[in-house]
Simulated scan of single mutants.
Amino acid sequence: MNDQLHSVALAWTIARRDGVTIGLTDHDRDLVIDGLLYAAAPGMTPSAVKRSGDLEADTTEIAGALTGAAIGEADLLAGRWDGARVRVRAVDWTSGDVRAELGGGTIGAVELGERGFTAELRGVAALLDAPMAEATSPGCRAELGDRRCRVAMATRRRFARVLAVVETVVTLDTAEPLANAYGDGLLRWFGGANCGLESAVARSADATVTLRAPPRLAVDPGTLVELIEGCDKTIATCTARFGNAANFRGEPYLPGIDLLTRYPGA
Rank of each mutant, 00 (worst) to 15 (best):
L66R: 08
G116Q: 11
G23A: 05
T210Q: 13
L260M: 14
K50F: 04
F159Q: 14
R212C: 13
A48G: 13
A41C: 13
D30E: 15
N2P: 11
H6G: 10
A90Y: 09
Y38E: 03
D34A: 11
T210W: 05
L172Y: 01
E120L: 13
D97I: 00
L217H: 00
T94K: 10
N180A: 12
R99Y: 06
L254C: 10
A164Q: 10
M132R: 13
H27L: 03
A246Q: 11
W93D: 11
C231N: 10
G53W: 09
A90G: 09
L36W: 10
T21G: 02
I14Y: 04
R141F: 01
G103E: 04
V165H: 03
L55S: 15
D82N: 15
S47F: 06
C238M: 04
A69G: 12
N2D: 12
L227W: 06
L31T: 00
V124S: 11
T118Q: 06
I62M: 10
W81R: 02
L24E: 04
D232N: 15
A200C: 12
A15N: 02
D258K: 09
V201Y: 01
P221M: 07
G145N: 08
A125W: 00
D206K: 09
E226V: 11
L172Q: 00
A70R: 04
N244Y: 07
A213I: 04
R141G: 11
A90V: 06
R80L: 13
G145Q: 05
R141T: 14
A39P: 00
R150V: 15
P138R: 13
A41Y: 11
P42F: 00
V169K: 04
L197W: 02
H6E: 14
S199N: 12
F190M: 15
R161V: 07
L259M: 15
I62R: 02
S52G: 08
G123V: 02
L112K: 11
A119I: 05
R80I: 01
A84F: 05
V32E: 09
T136E: 12
S52H: 08
C140S: 04
R212G: 12
W93H: 15
R148N: 08
P177Q: 06
D30K: 07
F117Q: 01
A181E: 05
N2C: 06
T94S: 11
G250K: 01
V169T: 15
L10F: 12
D173Y: 01
R241T: 12
S7N: 14
A70T: 07
C238P: 02
W81Y: 09
V124P: 00
S95P: 03
R203S: 08
A193K: 05
A65W: 03
R188G: 08
A100R: 14
E226W: 07
D258A: 12
I22T: 02
D184C: 11
D97Y: 06
L254E: 11
F117R: 03
A15P: 00
G230W: 05
L186M: 10
A179C: 03
T94H: 12
V86N: 00
I228Y: 02
L10A: 02
Y38R: 02
F159D: 13
V86F: 04
D97M: 09
D54N: 13
D28I: 14
M153C: 07
D18L: 06
L197F: 05
E229K: 07
N194P: 03
L186P: 00
E226K: 08
K233H: 11
L77K: 13
G256W: 06
I33F: 02
G243Q: 09
